[in-house]
Write a protein that binds this DNA or RNA. Structure first.
Lengths: 247, 247
DNA sequence: TGGCTCTGTTATGCTTCATAACGAACACTA
DNA sequence: TAGTGTTCGTTATGAAGCATAACAGAGCCA
């Protein structure tokens, strides 16, 4: 029980297998969600799939909600990673290209895993009460920071033109300042109108993504949806003051 | 069983009470969803609330999905009505004001009834399979037409400037034409770039609404959210080519 | 009044979440 | 190598939900 070694924590064999089981549970739950196409998950199904009985899972997650919380955190992290990776594949001095990459990654992730997308950014799962101030909000902030940093980098390189809408109402103005002080005190302060435009950008991107991921754009053929998305990204770039590609 | 009267259908007493019961079931389900804050609904709860036993409900809805379908249709209709009513309160010659009214109505409805909003425009409820080609898609199209008609009216009055983005990729172009021919063959044809902008408009509006309704903007104080929404509406108006208010 | 339908009931079966009680494997210590 | 406590899994049990079956009373009509 007492850790004597000087290393932070040498995982014992038991801890390793335990961690592996936890991971397997989450993976199995993920696969089941994906297969069945719902955000619903049953302990019995997971256990059956793993060749175990349902009560055994309670050794690892005290509750159905606890498993859900873990999966929500994972999903946020995964989405954030996907976005960050796509963004960083485009050079810093091409912020519009980076925005496009971020948008495409966001969209692709949601289409690839609509259930996880619904889990984190949709309506809370029936019967699930998110832990207050818990790890989920942290994970959400981490993911959101990936989008913000795009604008920070662009601002630093002087690549940000004024956005389409210059006026910012007072409540949002003070709030932007507060948000900056709390979340990014070390970053240079972003123009308020850019902050406003950025939120609009997120909303527009998110809206398209939701509609598509949940099938509400199925009446459009795939290529038309792609065209529309491209157009939306260009509109978003224009409204936020990112340099337009050629045209 | 055979209807002999010349009137389309004189509802007999039994039919009236039956319809009333169906209505009460839906109302009760709605209230429970609202109270519990989920899209989950249990026959047992509804029955208990109505002073009945659960199996009795199967006389009115053969299935939990059947009840859900009915509620989805109602929700679409209700949303469509709310949007149309708000829109028509603003004169025809002020399309930007009408857009604002539509946006506010959409947003207000979603905030007032996040569960119903999730029901129709969110991820399908766990275990619910929407009937193919059923009444839900019709209801959805009716609701969506309320937004479109705003643009039709504006176009008819020559109040539509070219949108911010003129280029429209080929796949979307042909698709817009087809959509028009199928859905609104009698209306004058809308410029393709306006069609594109309109979809972007819907997505942006929907994105903000989703984020707010599901609590992902709770870190912003209410007045800041209002400001942001106003700004978004103005941005949307600008991108779609609607005349900007004063500025 | 007799007969039919409609509407509700109780009884039943299956499935899930969740807990309790128990047993076997493991790791560590003497 | 044998002993001991922890960990992990099992079966057993209970409560609740969906759904169906079988049955009983009320309404309507000849």
């Amino acid at each position: 029980m007492t850790v004597v070694s000087s290393e932070p924590h040498v995982p014992t064999r038991r801890e390793r297998t335990r961690a592996a089981t936890i991971e397997e549970i989450k993976q199995t739950a993920l696969r089941l969600m994906h297969d069945q196409g719902t955000t619903d998950l049953r302990f019995s199904d997971i256990a059956r799939e793993m060749g175990m009985t349902a009560p055994a899972l309670y050794r690892y997650f005290g509750d159905r909600d606890e498993l859900l919380t873990a999966m929500i955190v994972d999903a946020y992290d995964d989405l954030g990673d996907a976005v960050a990776e796509a963004r960083d594949r485009v050079p810093l001095d091409d912020p519009t290209g980076r925005l496009n990459a971020v948008g495409q990654a966001y969209r692709a992730w949601a289409r690839r895993e609509p259930q996880r997308f619904a889990l984190i950014l949709g309506m809370p799962v029936p019967g699930y009460a998110a832990p207050e101030e818990g790890p989920t909000t942290e994970a959400a902030q981490r993911a959101m920071a990936q989008l913000k940093s795009l604008f920070f980098d662009a601002a630093e390189l002087q690549l940000l033109q004024p956005p389409l809408l210059r006026e910012v109402a007072e409540p949002l103005r003070v709030c932007a300042q507060a948000e900056h002080d709390v979340m990014h005190p070390d970053e240079p302060v972003l123009p308020v109108e850019t902050f406003q435009a950025m939120l609009h950008c997120w909303a527009a991107l998110h809206g398209f993504t939701c509609l598509e991921a949940y099938g509400h754009l199925d009446w459009l053929p795939a290529e038309a949806r792609d065209s529309l998305f491209d157009a939306s990204i260009r509109l978003i770039a224009a409204t936020t003051g990112l340099p337009m590609p050629q045209a």
